[in-house]
Write a protein that binds this DNA or RNA. Sequence first.
DNA 1: AGTATAAACTGAACACTGTTTAGTGAACAT
DNA 2: ATGTTCACTAAACAGTGTTCAGTTTATACT
Lengths: 224, 224
Amino acid sequence: MAVNKIPEKKSQRREAARQSLREEILAASRDIITQEGFAALTMRKLAERIGYSPATLYLHFRNRDEIAHAVSRTGYADLLKTLSSITEKDRGKPADRLRSLAKAYVRFGLENPQTYALIFMEDPAYLAAVFAEPAEDDPAAACYSLMLAATGDLLAAGMRPPKAGKPARAVTAVELTESLWASMHGIVSLKLTCPAFPTAPADLLTEVLIETMLRGLSAATAKK
Amino acid sequence: MAVNKIPEKKSQRREAARQSLREEILAASRDIITQEGFAALTMRKLAERIGYSPATLYLHFRNRDEIAHAVSRTGYADLLKTLSSITEKDRGKPADRLRSLAKAYVRFGLENPQTYALIFMEDPAYLAAVFAEPAEDDPAAACYSLMLAATGDLLAAGMRPPKAGKPARAVTAVELTESLWASMHGIVSLKLTCPAFPTAPADLLTEVLIETMLRGLSAATAKK
DNA sequence: AGTATAAACTGAACACTGTTTAGTGAACAT
DNA sequence: ATGTTCACTAAACAGTGTTCAGTTTATACT
């Protein structure tokens, strides 16, 4: 029947245009989200900004959530960049690295409120998907690995974590990482949804948290 | 002119009916929210459930947010009831009381997900209002006082909190309370928005958090 | 009693939202 | 030149919160 006589050249052009428009949609979405928040990302507004009709958006994305999903990915990539810039330059003690990481995490949240709100508070499907079937190249998974490595190093440096669970046993690096992460997330998310509530500034709360926990972890070991 | 000939009796009846309908609206709202979440609380659905037209709702509440606000209040009252049931019966050491409070807080969030999401994640205006001009009888403010008292007792019992801030100084009870609260909130809110992410169960994370922090606070004091 | 007045209530509309579908026009492959 | 495929859009659908003119009902006064 029909012989595919190398239609790749032309198809490539089409495909390139497709990708280009797709990226344009995502760029506009990022703009709107970072400026006005995820709720302000309406399909009509987005379509108008890129000069197409709303229906066109559905030729490139299944629905609004899929756009959020794609934007989330770059959000996690941004977070990863922030965190890895810490681990790369900080070659000091594990405790100091964790301190820096915590501060950087919270600062990222406060400096990119709309992005943080999207990836951790409004698009839970992304995180859920990552932990449902872990992908190697996912930026969110990379963030997790990075944090896990930091607490792992801390424990390996001779810390004695408290016991927990039933029956009581030593806390694992995973549990410690997730406790820390959740705590940092609490500081950020609370500040983002209600700037008035934690009356103390976020960076101070972070310091209190990390210092107290570090002391709690090193309590059993000899000082200095 | 017209003499107001004691129209109070009749007015009272009217007023009673008004209040009754108002309460009916709120009861229906609570039902919908606890069952389907705040997003499912639409004015039309709410109106239909109580047998009135949507426009009637606006005779009793300025808008949907005001309904959320009223429902939030009872949500905080519920939380307060949970927390104060702890402080009343627990006459043990401050550390144990704080342990119980933390567990109860997290449990409340997980057992009343829609309510928790409403009062801490979807209706920030309420908390903002409380901390803008503190009202004595507000249940949210009472929750705060309760937690503050617990950490205050803990510090008074001889704990030596770590130093923080610039210049470094001893952490205050307020800062410690808010750090703890934010951390617990992080555990709850993360679990609610994404059950998959903190892979460890919430109560275990809570235990890790509270045990580590307690050790961090008592690190400088003699053991036992 | 009847009547004036005030309160309660509603139908219908407005301006939005995400999403679908039928139909048009242009670019491509043969 | 023709048949096919792809890109695109206007219009509609079913929702949303909210407003307002108009109607019904209950109260107040003579």
